[in-house]
Design a protein around this nucleic acid. Structure first.
Lengths: 221, 221
DNA sequence: AGAACGCTACCGACCGGTCGGTCGGTCGGC
DNA sequence: GCCGACCGACCGACCGGTCGGTAGCGTTCT
């Protein structure tokens, strides 16, 4: 129930392979609705064989969720933290997160819905890691706000709304549709950024040409 | 598995009462993770007693989901369709939808996640009703776009993103927190509208948008 | 008036089946 | 010859669902 990021021995690569496949299964059919025998059959082994790798169904779920959170950590949090400009950081964050979510057909995002099936200690760990990510989003928004580059919005509500938009992606996006995952990621980023930032050349902009605050709009109602 | 909107006989009022309570239970613990005996116990009756009202666990779920969709129909779709101006219609839609979702602690929204537990015919009916709602959102956006009042965004992506923001609300909003459900509904509406519309002093900005630099206090869920 | 009836609302006991999980192996490669 | 990978057979618990009742109550028959 612990274990994260051991060196890739043959055991661990097999574990990772199992994690990836089972993530998809849990994502498609739901954790509770999927029996261990079904999982094993999909993997071409028996239930007893599967239990060679995982001590319980819950432990398997925990490892899968942690695996997904690792992806977010490695491919979103770490690269994005290196971006200094908060606007560009936010854009990168949305695009990167949207991309891994559409790529995995929501396996990463949707599985976090299943945390309720975890025993409380494991649930707490997952929540803590999610919290770190949320703070990154909100802190970036706060940074923009302090710089006067954000519209008059509540940063907490904005952060949650942004995340809601992203995690909802797998519910409607389908590969091979009108838009590619790359296009959707960019479209969502523009939508979100455009909605949050003070309007003024909102895609490519020079940081000089910005008002410090927006005290009044023309024609207030 | 059919049945909708009979006159309120004593039987139906009891059914509705059961629906409301069980909706909360399913929402808290999940459909698959909740046994029929648990449900019955929470209602102060036995399993056999519960089966007097519903022919199956799935039928119970279907009735609950339909009940939630009825709420959206009566309190969002119908009143909002009467609004002629598309901008005001969209604002009303967001506010009304956000309000019933926070009011019911997400019972309405979250249960639609459980459609996968329904047998295909019932699932199809639910999806059709959800589709009607989605079309209302997208058509409104298209109307705005045609009138040149929308930023350069893809209306389909925008519609799904908007809905994602709303259905994600119950994951983080808690009653008795910093914001009331009314404030959150308005804030979200401003956020969404502001992000979509051509800027021109068109949002009524909420007084909540004052800077808040204090650290985080809550997590999703 | 009151016995008889019908019907709703519900219960205790029980059913076949499946669940997550265990255990004593077997077998192939180092 | 040992050890990691895996299997077939099996377990008790619990699942969704059924069945034969019955307590209570309004209506009807006499």
């Amino acid at each position: 129930m612990t274990a994260r990021r051991q060196p890739a021995s043959s055991l661990n690569s097999r574990r990772a392979e199992i994690c990836r496949k089972v993530a998809q299964i849990f994502c498609d059919r739901g954790f509770d609705a999927t029996s261990v025998s079904e999982i094993a059959r999909s993997l071409g082994m028996t239930k007893a064989g599967l239990y060679h790798y995982f001590v319980s169904k819950e432990a398997l779920l925990f490892e899968i969720i942690s695996f997904g959170l690792d992806r977010v950590h490695d491919e979103v949090i770490v690269p994005v933290r290196a971006v200094r400009d908060p606007e560009e950081r936010l854009r990168q964050l949305v695009i990167r997160h949207a991309r891994i979510i559409t790529r995995a057909q929501g396996a990463v995002a949707s599985l976090t819905d299943e945390i309720h099936a975890l025993p409380p200690p494991a649930r707490k760990k997952v929540k803590q890691r999610m919290r770190v990510y949320f703070d990154l989003v909100r802190d970036t928004l706060t940074e923009l706000k302090v710089a006067g580059r954000l519209r008059r919005v509540d940063v907490t509500v904005a952060a949650f709304s942004l995340l809601g938009t992203i995690v909802w992606l797998p519910r409607w996006f389908r590969h091979g549709g009108r838009l590619t995952e790359e296009q959707v990621a960019k479209e969502v980023a523009n939508l979100v950024l455009g909605g949050l930032l003070e309007r003024q050349g909102l895609t490519i902009e020079s940081p000089l040409a910005r008002r410090r605050l927006s005290p009044a709009r023309r024609m207030p109602r």
